[in-house]
Amino acid sequence: MPDLSMSHASRFKRALPAAASIAALLAIASPAGAQTVFVSNEKGNSITVIDAKTRQVTATIPVGERPRGIALSPDGKTLYICASDEDHIEVLDTESLEVTGTLPSGPDPELMTIAPDGSRLYAANEDDNLVTVIDLATGDAVAEVQVGVEPEGMAVSPDGKTIVNTSETTNMAHFIDADSFEIVANVLVDQRPRFAQFTDDGSEVWVSAEIGGTVSVIDVATKEIKKKISFSVPGLQPEAIQPVGIRITKDRSKAFVALGPANRVAVVNAQTFEVEKYLLVGQRVWQLAFTPDESELYATNGVSNDVSVIDVAKLKTVVSIPVGSFPWGVAIKP
């Protein structure tokens, strides 16, 4: 059960007078720094909008079938949504909360990432073993890169020069040069790599392996695995531990890893790679996102239809917020 601390309970009470009907208006009218959380609901075919200050759901936006991976443009104005069963990416205006267009993605898009300068979108196209590069100014696919079987995880280095894709059946992290679109290295990791995340200094890429149960920390300079992190929760069978989403603090002090059906988020010391704590969240936790000040971490719990909010300083789950059916992806706008 989430620990509902006093301070949060009182905030919750203060927020109550803001009735649901006007809450939607507040979200639109709210000033910068409001911290708006977007959650994709895979089965609900919707995006839930949460005000991170009040922790109230302010809007639910119907979108295309089976929304999974979501990503914000660097300026926060646009949310890109993989509508998996529509075989395209939807473009949502985060001010008007309206879907304004679609982008090509190939069949069954699942995860994507946006270049740091906002110029391109990189999407994994699982059906054809391709990474598709989309020019966001024109909305056209400008390049395709042949990768391993079932490409899924997508990450881009902070300098924008390197793209990393993980292939779930080939079990590799493919490093792709963002200028030439050539693969420069392939790193074999454990079974079913789902997600890749660069450290903020660009020196490491962390890759989770869902079936392997590990996170591989890859040294970007040498393309060698410098550490393979394993997880163990007393009373849980090892196969229940299935790492998916990863977030690392900017100062590289801590990393958080969502462990799927283990219903926990692991806290890892990102310097020593020791697992320090397991935080109990909802059922089948998959994706994670920090608030912009990194004070809080949101985690999507697919089976329990809610998101858990983790206090990053106290390393405690402080509240859970009911969202739509089978929450999958999460992105937070400053």
């Binding site: 042949q146 493919h174 050539e182 693969i183 290295a185 790193v187 393309k223």
Partner: peptide, 13 residues
Amino acid sequence: VAVAALSPGAASA
């Protein structure tokens, strides 16, 4: 085709 296109990537191979 792939081997030709990906030769720079074959560093480890």
